[in-house]
Amino acid sequence: MKSLIMGTAALALAAGMAFAQGQTIRMGTEGAYPPYNFINDAGEVDGFERELGDELCKRAELTCEWVKNDWDSIIPNLVSGNYDTIMAGMSITDERDQVIDFTQNYFPPTASAYVAASDGVDVLNGVVAAQTATIQAGHVAESGATLVEFATPEETIAAVRNGEADAVLADYDFLVPLVEESSGELMFVGEPVPLGGGIGMGLRESDGELRDRFDAIITEMKADGSLNTMLKKWFGEDTTTY
């Protein structure tokens, strides 16, 4: 195992020659999806992906600069070259993979979950809220429930609280803190839904070298346990690890 890692690391080093040490890489994120990425009290990008991204850059000996971008245009801006990577809680899906490249996932395939204001909500026939144009919205549309789409995640939760929707389908880890702090008002209902192939870092297809380099470092971090430490720090002891 160890020699394999050494091998990939050496390979990565050879492949990464084009990226000089200390070169600046711009990392695109959304900054509105805790705990993956959010804006902290000081106004900086913070969260699991910030910490992971900084570590990746450190190990790759690159300087990283974080850039916020609206979710809707996050991929067009990447392919157009306004930043070099996306770390924004972006699930690896086939349709995205056709346009951009992903590293291996740095977050295991996640479950999305339903949250409702009362027990016994029928999530397959009721009214279910989701953020516009997310994989969750696509899933609800197919599930047979009545889909109601809101522009931001905030509004989907508000819709459940005020009764516009029976339940909301969103990423499990996004919902956990909200449910915990709602003092019993919100609760998980129904079965979790596995969606997407985990979360990975998105890069331009023409940036093969950079992708291989980050990919190798993610492998390395999975092996030495540092990724698991971060996952536990941000998502709790019970989270799935590698």
């Binding site: 809220a129 009545t146 109601v148 789409e149 509004e155």
Partner: peptide, 10 residues
């Protein structure tokens, strides 16, 4: 629908 009201059933 862009910023004001939710879209129902797409």
């Amino acid at each position: 629908f862009f910023s004001g009201f939710p879209a129902w059933q797409q």
